[in-house]
Lab assay of single mutants.
Amino acid sequence: MALNTPQITPTKKITVRAIGEELPRGDYQRCPQCDMLFSLPEINSHQSAYCPRCQAKIRDGRDWSLTRLAAMAFTMLLLMPFAWGEPLLHIWLLGIRIDANVMQGIWQMTKQGDAITGSMVFFCVIGAPLILVTSIAYLWFGNRLGMNLRPVLLMLERLKEWVMLDIYLVGIGVASIKVQDYAHIQAGVGLFSFVALVILTTVTLSHLNVEELWERFYPQRPATRRDEKLRVCLGCHFTGYPDQRGRCPRCHIPLRLRRRHSLQKCWAALLASIVLLLPANLLPISIIYLNGGRQEDTILSGIMSLASSNIAVAGIVFIASILVPFTKVIVMFTLLLSIHFKCQQGLRTRILLLRMVTWIGRWSMLDLFVISLTMSLINRDQILAFTMGPAAFYFGAAVILTILAVEWLDSRLLWDAHESGNARFDD
């Protein structure tokens, strides 16, 4: 018995066209964080690309023209004298008006014999932002004059995390709450300039795509075929072959399989920071003279006294001054041990922890910024005066060393310790 099946006739004509040209192939790229070699397709503007294995951002879609970056830099340069030299806060102490600005706080630190601690604050609040705007201006002028731009481009990517104007702005709020127990506070004209400078700096850093600047100024022929001998440069993120001198053909720094002496430098910085954190938390970090009496505060006791007036601000200072430094030390110690013992479990967790400490590390400088600003506000000789204690130097040095330890660690070593050939990683 035959089955009668109805015929289905399409209502619209289906047209099949042959592909007349070869589909576009992607360029081969190595991930600078996990060293995976993959094919990167062509990316349009405002599109980002991520590593298929570790999800690290390979290409950032946010990109401004150099002219727009230069305009932002010149605007920031105009704001800087007002943000640093004009009063941020006014207080009335014992019937006398006192003005506080950024430069005055750094000068008070240096004047009291601790120039190293003052230079830490100076670099993060004044030096690094000033280098940022002058570097962008150098790129703008240098591109037109045919100057060598490689050193500036190499420095810009590392400079971003040292620009800490946003953290200093939080420190202004913390210092205001600490001082309000002794005097009446009012915002100064410099505060508005400083807030504007923070906003412009944040926007500029978020749109400063150094890798795209490398592509514009020093374009290189990408690798179009897969080759395990391809290496990625950690300076400019170019994937290719080393030249005859073993250097990256684009930025001219040595092109090595792994960062040289990464573990040794990381261990040295980490152990030194552990040693410095002990006096930083045991010795007094601030000293207040009130009517001839002397009151010393460690980091913890200062947080407890701050909690009596504002528990939320005390929580912020606790996280930045105690929780973050010790968390960074514990995480980095764990990561280094996992590399030495070739741990194969929990790779995803370790990668996330490394990215976390990379982002939060700079916030530990908050305590030094609060001390710097408070020193310029309260300084009335023996009637009422505020000065920093010996722990300030140890704390600042420990924070900087932990930042350097994270920067010096080559994250690809975590993958080397893991089993080879993993296309995915999980716990």
Results as ranks from 00 to 15, higher is better:
L336V: 13
I285V: 10
H237F: 06
H261N: 03
R250C: 13
H252K: 03
P242G: 04
C31K: 00
L404I: 15
M304E: 11
R59I: 08
F333Y: 08
V189M: 13
F393G: 10
L40H: 07
R350V: 09
L93F: 03
A423V: 09
K342R: 11
T134K: 07
M365G: 10
D99K: 11
L401T: 07
F38K: 03
V329Y: 04
R380I: 03
L165K: 07
I371G: 01
A56R: 14
C251P: 00
G95Y: 06
I131S: 06
R225L: 06
I43G: 12
F425G: 12
I339D: 09
A268E: 02
D227G: 08
I106Q: 05
M155A: 03
H207F: 15
R144Q: 13
T75E: 15
L353M: 12
L413I: 13
K265V: 01
K111F: 02
Y241W: 05
L79M: 12
L205C: 12
S411F: 07
C266A: 04
I172R: 00
I106A: 02
L213A: 14
A2G: 06
A385G: 06
F326G: 05
K328D: 00
P222C: 11
A423H: 12
E42R: 13
R247Y: 09
L366T: 14
I58M: 13
F217P: 05
A280M: 07
L66Y: 15
L337M: 11
A307S: 05
I106V: 09
L257E: 04
W267M: 09
R59K: 13
G146Y: 01
L278W: 06
R225G: 07
P52H: 15
G85H: 10
A223F: 12
L300W: 10
E42P: 10
M356R: 07
L290Y: 05
L3P: 13
A73M: 14
I299V: 07
L230W: 13
G190W: 00
D243Q: 07
M388Y: 04
M356N: 10
Y241D: 06
T239P: 03
G361V: 13
L290Q: 01
R250V: 15
N291F: 15
T224W: 08
K111C: 02
R225N: 09
N379P: 01
R380P: 00
P325H: 06
V121T: 05
A272E: 00
T349H: 14
T5C: 07
P325E: 00
P24S: 13
A71H: 03
T358Y: 09
Q345S: 10
F369Y: 14
V133H: 02
R250P: 01
L208K: 06
P279M: 08
S176Q: 09
L154A: 03
I403A: 03
R97I: 01
A307Y: 14
P87E: 06
L377E: 03
W140T: 15
S262A: 07
I58K: 09
L404P: 01
G292E: 02
